[in-house]
């Protein structure tokens, strides 16, 4: 009897396991939509959307999700745009001209991103509250020391006021990555909204005129989002890249073969084929001798 009870218990346990497993399989994973505000060089702002899903404690990018982005409120009149996320789960919407008049008046705003439910995911949304801010950069040269001053100002009513305690990055833009101008990774703005970084990258290769691109930016700031400014300065070492495109090299086109190679290959070919031509002439000579001779020599 006791054994029978154990079997019943086992069967009930298995049934519970199967049902819970079925329920788990039917549940769609939760889609995460994150919104990020961007303003580069104080021009047209844009919104970056990221769609992700958390599976086994890992965030996986979700491509192909259609996301609507709104400014302020989730209604058609405030629609900034519709974007489908790429293979990295990312999509970008630039602010359209139609919102300019509204945009110019606001100092705080909310960005809302929504996605509708589909076969794989439930509907999801994300939002970001942003205080409108701008960043400028200035260069200072005193006592032989070069410094960069980044100024962050936030909009308050109709005025732009200094934004203190904002972590900024002051960097030099390179081809692949960015390089900090000094020893510190980031610089925090003071009460006047200014962050000063000493330029220590002496002899940094620039373009042909010695121009390098300075960048000051905030990254995922809770209040201001991602704002950045770029400014070229003539602080780099002039660099003229070695361009062999139009020169005679081993990897150039056929009409740009190196002279030494043409000479070497040509000499060998001419040398060997001269011998062959000489031998062909010898055969003609043998033939001529045979044709001239009318007697038959006994073998």
């Amino acid at each position: 009897m006791k054994m029978l009870n154990n079997y019943k218990l086992l069967l009930v346990g298995l049934a519970v396991l199967c049902v819970s497993s079925a329920i788990t399989q039917d549940t769609k994973p939760s889609l995460l939509v994150t919104v990020s505000y961007r303003l580069a060089n104080n021009t047209v702002p844009s919104v970056s959307i990221f769609t992700k899903v958390k599976i086994n404690k890992k965030f996986i990018d979700v491509p192909g999700i259609t996301v609507k982005v709104f400014l302020g409120q989730e209604k058609e009149a405030n629609l900034l745009g519709i974007v489908q996320t790429n293979k990295y789960g990312n999509g970008v919407v630039s602010f359209p001209v139609s919102v300019k008049s509204f945009w110019d008046t606001v100092s705080h705003f909310t960005l809302i991103a929504t996605s509708e439910a589909n076969k794989q995911y439930e509907s999801a949304s994300g939002e970001a509250s942003v205080t409108k801010a701008k960043i400028t950069v200035d260069t200072v040269f005193t006592d032989g020391i070069r410094s960069i001053v980044a100024t962050v100002k936030a909009k308050s009513g109709n005025d732009w006021i200094p934004a203190p305690d904002v972590e900024t990055k002051i960097i030099i833009k390179r081809s692949i990555g960015n390089l900090s101008v000094g020893d510190a990774e980031t610089y925090t703005t003071d009460s006047s909204g200014q962050a000063t970084a000493e330029f220590k990258r002496i002899d940094m290769p620039g373009d042909a005129n010695g121009n390098i691109m300075l960048v000051a930016k905030t990254e995922d700031n809770e209040l201001y989002g991602n704002i950045s400014i770029e400014q070229p300065v003539k602080w780099g070492a002039p660099f003229t890249p070695l361009n062999t495109f139009d020169e005679r090299t081993l990897f150039a086109t056929r009409d740009k073969a190196p002279i030494w190679l043409l000479f070497l290959a040509g000499s060998i070919v001419v040398g060997v084929w001269s011998v062959i031509i000489y031998l062909a002439r010898q055969i003609i000579q043998i033939r001529k001798l045979g044709m001239e001779d009318t007697t038959d020599v006994k073998q």
Binding site: I268, L279, I283, I286, R287, K288, G290, T295
Partner: peptide
Amino acid sequence: SFWKGLALQEKINNKAVTILCITIIPVAFS
């Protein structure tokens, strides 16, 4: 048909073969 086995023919031929033998070695290596 032009080969009559003349001494001069033999001489030219032998010389040509020797030149060929010298030439073919570097070409073969190449």
